[in-house]
Design a binder for these strands. Structure first.
Lengths: 154, 154
DNA sequence: ATTACTGCAAAGCATTTGCAAATGC
DNA sequence: GCATTTGCAAATGCTTTGCAGTAAT
């Protein structure tokens, strides 16, 4: 149901995300800038997961250039806004994943080809919820990663 | 059921761990050294989680001094040997956790005080196993982390 | 005797930061 | 006009590496 192969992010989705980001920025009394719009756009356009440095390199070329430092600063802002989330699983570097308008899901990581496979399981969530209750722990979020070999690589 | 408050690692456990590490080293045709024994010992003595740099600092003082570089190299070896595992959750830096003779468990991380709370849930494992079967994914390991607020901090 | 291991200090590298210039409000 | 943001480049801090000396087999 995606729009077109080159950009998996529809214009409408981008618009909505930008509206949300803008409102977040204003709520904090900060400034809505073109630079921030560009970073958000490029981050969402990457689709799947990406690294800060990767995005920084991408954005440092072309007409809409944004400096490395600013990419890092804006990414942190996007995380605070809840539009992007940090993933720390594999290498030393933080990976990011857009969360805007995406349903909750867990990951399987193929140790052979590196693929991120998304899946979800209501029953697991429910058990996690129970475990928190049992331990008297107030959950804000959780993360489940399964390492192994994907179907293709077996 | 722990031995004494100052070191939660019994002498016997240390001995067993060292035997296992030694056998791993020999199997690879590498060399069994005093330095490696010291790093293993200090790593296990830390109990809970620790960071490489933390251990390096700890070990760089006192009579049994081991250099920073060697700590990192030995830690990598311990991971390969399966005596210690890497945890990448919180900050940019890798955390380590001894796995020798410790039962599998998941973590809850308190976002207020930073505590690592360990818990386990057979039912969750079983569902994870089912999910892998469904997705035709061959699991080698998994990791579940729940973020939130612990009982004390609520 | 060989070959691996260690310590040291230097190099790497993603990320952060300080500061002057640019920009939003 | 004033405060925030940006770009640039330099600094940071953990981690890795090269090399000469040391130790294990």
């Amino acid at each position: 149901m995606t729009a077109d192969p080159t950009s998996s992010v529809t214009q409408t989705l981008l618009q909505e995300a930008w509206d949300e980001f803008r409102s977040f920025i204003k709520r904090r009394g900060d400034r809505v800038t073109e630079t921030r719009r560009i970073v958000l756009e490029r981050a969402l356009q990457r689709g799947g997961h990406f690294q800060a440095d990767e995005l920084a390199r991408d954005v440092s070329r072309g007409s809409d250039r944004v400096s490395r430092g600013t990419v890092y600063r804006t990414l942190a802002l996007l995380v605070e806004a809840g539009l992007v989330r940090e993933i720390r699983d594999r290498d030393t570097h933080v990976h990011y994943e857009p969360v805007f308008n995406r349903p909750h899901h867990e990951h399987m990581i193929c140790e052979t080809c590196g693929a991120f496979i998304e899946f979800d399981d209501e029953a697991i969530h429910s058990l996690i919820h129970d475990a928190c209750k049992r331990m008297e722990f107030a959950e804000t979020s959780h993360r489940l990663v399964i390492f192994g070999t994907c179907k293709k690589c077996q």
